[in-house]
């Protein structure tokens, strides 16, 4: 066991310091974790990731291009910001493409449980990517953020579908292929 006083160590005083290297406030553990999560992003065919600065991976954009369902042929941009407290705190995610969706509002706020109340450090960025894709395949009208969209989705699927198409055309979310 460690025995402090028996070590009789003379601690160097702060004045005697020679080397005066200031350290950064990022911890190795946090950086390694983010690097691992980023390099293992599972994008598949329907997602792509864009990094404005390869040396600053705490901010990036994920493009989500659903290949089936109501939002097929759309391309939706989500801006990810990774807080310094990641993975203790979840990434901040905003949708930058205007979309008519029960769980995404006009300002781009996204209602996805693991982005807020159900986030846990054992989850990774991939869990969020899967979550976002799932939102486009199965919108959830029971927990709406855009009430109008949710009601229409529940009451009149055809009208909802038409409204989605219109919103995708207006916002330029449609991508041709």
């Amino acid at each position: 066991m460690l025995k402090l006083f028996s070590l009789k160590q003379k601690k160097q005083s702060a004045q005697e310091q020679t080397e005066n290297k200031t350290s950064s406030n990022k911890t190795t553990a946090a950086e390694l974790r983010l690097q691992k999560d980023i390099s293992e992003l599972d994008t598949g065919k329907t997602l792509s990731v864009y990094f404005p600065d390869k040396n600053n991976i705490v901010e990036f954009i994920v493009y989500c291009k659903p290949d089936e369902g109501i939002y097929k042929y759309g391309c939706f941009a989500f801006r990810f910001k990774i807080p310094p407290t990641y993975p203790h705190d979840p990434p901040k995610v905003k949708c930058e493409t205007k979309v008519f969706h029960p769980n995404i509002d006009e300002e781009g706020n996204v209602c996805l449980n693991i982005l807020r109340e159900d986030w846990k450090p054992i989850l990774s960025l991939n869990a969020i990517l899967y979550g976002l894709q799932y939102l486009f395949l199965e919108p959830n009208p029971d927990d709406p953020l855009n009430k109008e969209a949710a009601n229409l989705y529940r009451d009149n699927k055809a009208a909802f579908y038409a409204q989605v198409q219109r919103s995708m055309r207006e916002s330029g979310a449609y991508y041709s292929r």
């Binding site: 769980n103 706020n109 996204v110 209602c111 807020r116 109340e117 927990d143 709406p144 953020l145 009430k147």
Partner: peptide, 8 residues
């Protein structure tokens, strides 16, 4: 808190 609860 869940965003949808806050909103609605």
């Amino acid at each position: 808190y869940p965003l949808c609860t806050i909103a609605n």
